[in-house]
């Protein structure tokens, strides 16, 4: 009797293989649709709703006044930190990979710094370049008072310096594989053909490394554009960033407005999708050289 049951069972699973496939994939599908897809759908639908049904009022509000300024400010800061971190990280990666340095302790430090961020980093930067931070006081002793010259850690420049703390090492870690796989044969070939250093960079080095660089900068941009915790801990509502505006639209007592938060979130998602697409395309280009 038991053997008859087993035969039936086996034949059922064999006859309908897609059933077991679907059953095995179901938990992940349920988790993703409930906790990732559904929130996005709700957000998009909610962004087109105002008090009396469907409308574009939320989007119209985002392209005016403080929200437009916040959007432009977020774009500028993200671009600046991405380019700054991107250039510094690339040059550091090249130095580490091609120079006579022991890189492993520095790489551990870099991976810690790239992963740390958030609230603790904000307070650490206040203790460093805040009004009574140690670097500020050291500079005062030398004779330059940053806070007399308009600098503040709670402003845009302070935020850029803070973001550089994780953007620089992140770019270093992103670029290192590409730089390491850059064949020394290519450099030697260029040199033996009589290329000067600038000619080597113009015709060989930069063309080969550029796709990886663009991809890395795009990822750094996305990283800064979507960041909230560091800025929130650093200056509360004082910084004019999209993520901070959204936080107060959702959590604030006086400025509570989920419809507007939805519209801003959708716009953010569009910008980030463009950045990630650039990353994917650049990455594909970069792989051509990495066979």
């Amino acid at each position: 009797m038991s053997s008859a049951v087993t035969t039936f069972k086996q034949s059922f699973w064999l006859r309908y293989p897609w059933v077991s496939t679907a059953l095995g994939l179901a938990p992940m599908a349920i988790a993703l649709s409930g906790l990732l897809v559904l929130p996005i759908v709700i957000m998009v639908v909610g962004s087109f709703k105002a008090d009396q049904g469907w409308s574009l009022a939320n989007y119209l509000a985002t392209i005016r006044g403080e929200y437009l300024r916040a959007f432009i400010n977020t774009l500028m800061i993200s671009l600046l930190t991405a380019v700054l971190g991107g250039v510094l990280g690339t040059v550091t990666a090249i130095t580490l990979a091609w120079g006579p340095f022991n890189s492993s302790p520095l790489l551990t430090l870099a991976s810690v710094a790239a992963n740390w961020g958030g609230v603790p980093l904000a307070f650490a930067m206040i203790a460093t370049i805040g009004n009574s931070g140690w670097v500020t006081e050291l500079l005062r002793l030398v004779g330059w008072d940053a806070y007399q010259n308009g600098f503040t850690v709670y402003g845009n420049v302070g935020l850029i310096l803070t973001y550089t703390y994780f953007q620089w090492p992140l770019m270093l870690l992103l670029m290192l594989p590409a730089v390491q796989r850059f064949r020394s044969a290519w450099r030697e070939a260029a040199e033996s053909l009589g290329a000067t250093r600038s000619q080597f960079w113009r015709w060989v080095g930069i063309p080969i490394l550029l796709p990886s660089m663009i991809g890395g900068v795009a990822l750094l941009f996305a990283n800064a554009f979507g960041a909230q915790a560091t800025a929130f801990a650093l200056a509360g509502g004082a910084l004019n960033l999209i993520t901070i505006k959204i936080t107060f639209l959702i959590k604030g007592q006086t400025s509570f407005n989920p419809g507007l938060a939805n519209a801003l979130s959708v716009e953010m998602t569009v910008v980030l999708a463009i950045a990630v697409t650039i990353y994917l395309i650049a990455n594909q280009r970069a792989r051509r050289w990495m066979q």
Partner: peptide, 17 residues
């Protein structure tokens, strides 16, 4: 996806559901 849908955006969606 977490790069496209950062914590802020996901939070906005989740809190409404």
């Amino acid at each position: 996806l977490p790069f496209v849908v950062p914590a802020v955006t996901l939070g906005v969606g989740l809190i409404q559901i």
